[in-house]
Amino acid sequence: MRRILAVLLENEPGSLSRIVGLFSQRAFNIESLTVAPTEDQSLSRITIATRGDDKVLEQIVKQVNKLIDVIKITDLTERSHVERELLLIKVLAMNDKSRTEVKRITDIFRGSIVDIGKQVYTIELTGDAEKLNAFVNTLANETEIIESVRSGCVGIARGEKALRL
């Protein structure tokens, strides 16, 4: 089962490598991992998408929590939450037909074209993983994908619940 974990930890050198190392050392799966400092520069927040049954997930949460740098960890998938991922994708747009079609698909998915080259469009789209997959598949049927990059998901709990000090 897919889970999304949010981790609040000290923004220290090496703290990310401890998390990544732990996952490989204990043979836990990482689907995606994103990290950045929070508004409080002394803290970093990591979002990890992983897979595992309840027993594995319990171990992951406990093992991550055991790391000295980690302040808090929560499983966002336990409750209702908002989950987003950013996609930047560069596609071939050589003639009027393909430009029109790419623009139309982008509008339908509420993405935006952020750069135009002589023969390419670069599109930005945010959403959950499913929406991004659908967008990429639709584009692939219409034109050639030159390259794409995805941020991995970030997530936050709905309502009053918060991950903070």
Binding site: P13, G14, S17, R18, G21, Q25, I68, D69
Partner: peptide, 14 residues
């Protein structure tokens, strides 16, 4: 050495 020992320490410092 911090990298080498990472999986076998409780914690480490640079």
């Amino acid at each position: 050495i911090v990298g080498c020992s990472r999986p076998i320490v409780k914690h480490s410092f640079n």
